[in-house]
Simulated scan of single mutants.
Amino acid sequence: MVQEKESTIEIGGQPLYTRSWLPDGQIKAKLVFIHGFSDHLGRYADGLFPALANRGIAVHGFDQRGWGKSVRKSEEKGRTGPTTQVLEDMAEFIKLHLPKGYTDPPVFVMGHSMGGGQVLTFFSDPKYEDSIVTKVRGWLLESPFIGFSPEERPSTIKIFAGRLAGKLLPHQQLVHKINPENLSRDPRVVESIRKDELMHDTGTLEGLAGLLDRTTALDQGQVKPRKKGVVKAVWFGHGTMDKTTWFESSRRYFENCLGEVEDKEFRKYDGWYHQLHADGPDSEVFFKEVGDWILKRVDEVVVKGEGDKPEAKL
């Protein structure tokens, strides 16, 4: 039986909604989850998160600043702040769940879509290497936002104008509508997205400019791990028919930018759309593969040097 807990934490003066899915028995691992644009934790509550918790993986997430139940006033919609604030929010939340000792379960971090791009940016930032990144056992990216799909790619003029406007009117809100039919092959999921009032599709010019800058830097290979051993393990999952973020950008980043990561895996989901966790009955396969990858690294033992005793790899 999965236990769910809701709470609120304050980061940088902003109260943020949090929710956890806890196993009824032993906690084998913890997963910190970072959601995407116009998304919120409730979208995962009936599928991925309880499926993982039923296998002993505790899931902890928060509705990011400007999104979901962390929005309490209309003017807060999409008000994420600059990238520095986005990363600091992530850092403070991840730190809450890091192991305090060797007997604590290992921690993994997973990001979906925009959240995937944020995770890649975070673990490549030298500021967080020693305090957080080296203490995380593995990083998972679901359909990460590294490049626009051909269906969603804005013009160069629109990108330039957006960045300029973001500097002049950072808190100006702008609706960026994403077609629900591009997110999932499941008609029931598509309809639920249309009716979900928490998915407001509203960003600020500052937040959208930061999103564009992060995405461009990732797509051009400017942001990546710099030292061996800092990022211990990485898993990518992306659907070939994703019409929101681009499969080819993920594949290219995986092949060209993770040379400092020894333990890495890319999973291609042929014919799948953007929300691998909510893409119809096939999503059960996704749940299992995510859980398998995490639990394999929980049980893994590494021998350090000749004659040394085996030591748990955290």
Rank of each mutant, 00 (worst) to 15 (best):
D308T: 06
V136H: 05
T245W: 05
Y273I: 02
T8E: 12
T103Y: 03
Q64L: 13
S184M: 08
L208G: 11
E181M: 11
I159G: 06
G239C: 10
K158T: 15
K296E: 14
L205E: 02
R43E: 11
G207A: 15
P281W: 02
V230H: 09
I157T: 14
E197V: 10
T8N: 04
W272P: 00
E289V: 02
P180V: 10
E260F: 00
T8D: 02
D186H: 11
N54I: 00
P106S: 09
F122D: 03
T103E: 12
C257T: 02
S184T: 11
E88R: 13
V175G: 00
T244N: 09
S113P: 09
K224E: 02
F266E: 04
V86Q: 11
G259S: 12
N256L: 13
E191D: 15
R19Q: 12
V119I: 13
T83C: 04
Q14A: 07
G207T: 08
T8Y: 08
E76L: 11
G259D: 14
R79Y: 13
L168H: 01
S283E: 08
Q220K: 14
G25H: 03
L141F: 15
G36K: 03
L314I: 13
A161H: 01
P82T: 04
G271H: 06
V59Y: 05
P50W: 13
R194K: 15
T134C: 08
T18E: 02
H112V: 01
S74H: 06
M114T: 13
L41Q: 05
E191P: 01
V261R: 11
S184W: 09
G66S: 07
E151I: 08
H60F: 14
K227W: 02
S70W: 11
R226E: 14
F93G: 03
E191T: 09
H171D: 13
A209K: 14
F122G: 01
K95N: 12
L22T: 09
L212R: 01
D242Y: 10
I34Y: 04
P99S: 04
L169K: 14
W235M: 15
S192M: 09
Q85S: 10
